[in-house]
Amino acid sequence: MNLDNIRIVLVNTSHPGNIGGVARAMKNMGLSRLYLVAPRQFPDEQASWRAASAGDVLDAAVVTATLDEAIADCQFVVGTSARGRRIPWPLQDPRSCARRMASASATEQVAVLFGREDRGLTNEELQLCNLHLNIPTSADYSSLNLAMAVQVVCYELRMLLDAGQLPASEDDEWDAPFATRDNMERFYQHLEQTLVDVEFLDPAAPRQLMTRLRRLYSRVRLDEMELNILRGILTETQKWVRKAQPQDVSGASGAEDYTPKTK
Rank of each mutant, 00 (worst) to 15 (best):
Y155Q: 04
I19R: 00
G232K: 01
L209Y: 10
G164A: 14
S53V: 01
L157C: 04
A102D: 03
D44Y: 05
Q189I: 07
S142E: 09
R186D: 12
T262E: 11
A54R: 00
M148Y: 09
V11F: 11
L121R: 05
M29E: 02
L161G: 09
D202M: 06
E45M: 04
L3I: 09
S103K: 13
W174Y: 04
Y155G: 03
C74A: 14
Q193K: 15
E170L: 05
Y35A: 11
Q208V: 10
H15T: 05
L230Y: 07
E192S: 15
K261S: 14
D162H: 07
V196G: 13
Q109P: 00
R158E: 02
E224F: 05
A104S: 15
S48Q: 13
L3A: 00
P94Y: 02
E125L: 08
G21D: 04
M184H: 07
R7H: 09
L128V: 07
E108V: 00
L195S: 02
Q75N: 07
A72R: 11
I19V: 13
S48F: 05
A54E: 03
R99K: 13
S103Y: 08
S143M: 07
R40K: 15
W49V: 09
W240Q: 15
E256T: 13
D182M: 06
D73M: 01
D171W: 10
R212A: 14
E124Y: 08
S142H: 10
E185L: 09
M148S: 15
L160V: 02
E236W: 14
A51F: 06
Q245K: 14
H15L: 12
E185D: 14
H15W: 08
A176L: 03
D4L: 02
E108R: 06
F178W: 08
E117F: 10
G254A: 08
T80A: 11
G232F: 08
Q127H: 12
G115Y: 07
L146P: 06
S218Q: 13
R95I: 03
V112S: 09
L128Y: 03
V78W: 06
P88V: 11
Y155D: 04
N134R: 15
N183K: 11
R86W: 06
A106W: 05
R83N: 10
E192L: 11
T259C: 05
I8A: 02
R221Q: 12
K239M: 12
L160W: 02
W49N: 06
W49R: 11
S142F: 09
D93G: 15
K27S: 02
V150H: 02
H132R: 06
S81G: 11
M225Y: 10
R219N: 10
N145I: 09
Y188K: 10
R242E: 15
A179T: 13
I229G: 06
R181Y: 04
N2V: 04
A51R: 00
P43C: 04
G120H: 12
F187Y: 12
A179P: 00
R95M: 07
N18F: 04
I135H: 07
P16W: 04
I6V: 11
L91D: 11
D172W: 00
L157D: 00
N5I: 03
T137R: 12
V77Q: 04
I19S: 01
E69N: 08
D59I: 01
E173H: 05
